[in-house]
């Protein structure tokens, strides 16, 4: 339906494409060095704390506690300076593989569900509610929801929420994460979709498409960058969460998620905190891979054709 349109745009856009190619060649325009320097400076600033963790994760426990991590650079080849012991301890600690799998089991469906429940056509009462709900502290929701899961709910003897025996199942966690993730999803995506030119939708309507078709064929494809952004956040949030998973799954070893396992490593009095540095890097690996692989969706010009309508 919108094919004809896209064709039109391509034709119109041709000179522009040429122009942007020109830009690619004349790379260091005025201000080019400024751009590069600023970016490098900010990156260095952001990396320093993480670098501390990385260095510490490869040093032995006694050294970590007796000298600053930056001193490792002063004598990098000294014997006994570097070790992979922290990683070994972190990996050995009680079924890390299993909790990795559990984390995946929690993360993937939670992300997928949040996606599919996204609502794009909220009006503003719903919108107000959603913005307001962003502020609900998770901790306040845990007890009532756990009670719901375990006991169900009745109001004047009518079953309002059935006793589902959800507690201790992954399903309980997926649903909870979906619920908690919804406000941000609705808020982010409504904004993005609201910014799509209404002219495309109008013309699709004139072509006879119904809401459902418009939604799946037009809006979803156009929203890919926003969807990718949200996917990353939902994934991260669920991946790094230990509270929700702990509360609804329980602390049994067979269902422990990665972050819970790692957080427990430190010990209640904090005596093994250097183990956590390696643990932090282990648990960071997957989110970073997700981030990288979703990069290709943050591309320029998805809505290029849209302007003309």
């Amino acid at each position: 339906m919108s094919l004809a349109q896209a064709g039109d745009v391509e034709e119109a856009a041709e000179p522009v494409v040429a122009a942007s190619q020109g830009r690619g060649v004349g790379e260091v325009r005025k201000g080019g060095w400024f751009v590069l320097l600023t970016i490098v400076a900010v990156c260095v600033l952001w990396l320093i704390p993480a670098l501390g963790v990385l260095v510490t994760s490869f040093r032995n426990g006694d050294l970590v506690n007796t000298s600053g991590w930056w001193t490792a650079f002063a004598h990098p080849f000294q014997a006994g300076e570097w070790t992979v012991e922290n990683y070994r301890s972190a990996l050995d600690a009680g079924g890390l593989g299993n909790s990795f799998l559990n984390s995946l089991a929690v993360t993937i469906p939670s992300t997928a569900y949040a996606f599919s429940w996204m609502d794009f056509r909220g009006r503003y009462l719903l919108f107000v509610t959603v913005v307001g709900l962003l502020v609900v502290p998770l901790q306040m929701a845990l007890i009532p929801i756990l009670k719901l899961y375990v006991n169900g709910a009745t109001l004047f003897d009518y079953v309002v929420f059935p006793q589902l025996h959800l507690n201790g199942t992954f399903l309980a966690v997926w649903l909870a994460h979906t619920g908690f993730g919804l406000p941000l999803a609705v808020y982010l995506l409504r904004n993005y979709i609201g910014s799509l030119p209404s002219s495309i939708i109008e013309s699709a309507k004139i072509d006879g498409a119904d809401h459902f078709t418009i939604f799946w064929r037009l809006i979803v494809p156009l929203s890919v960058p926003a969807l990718a952004a949200f996917a990353i956040f939902q994934f991260l949030w669920v991946w790094n969460d230990l509270l929700v998973a702990y509360v609804f799954l329980g602390g049994e070893r067979s269902v422990q998620v990665l972050t819970l396992n790692l957080a427990n490593l430190v010990g209640s009095r904090g005596e093994n905190w250097q183990l956590l540095t390696s643990a932090a890097f282990i648990s960071m690996a997957l989110p970073l891979i997700v981030f990288f692989s979703l990069q290709k969706y943050f591309v320029r010009g998805l809505t290029a054709g849209a302007v003309k309508g």
Partner: peptide, 21 residues
């Protein structure tokens, strides 16, 4: 029997105690 180490004992006990698990 399953012994569980609580990383955040006070909160865990409140939440799961009230939730009944």
């Amino acid at each position: 029997v399953e012994f569980e180490a609580a990383g955040n004992f006070e909160q865990d006990v409140q939440v799961r105690g009230q939730g009944g698990t």
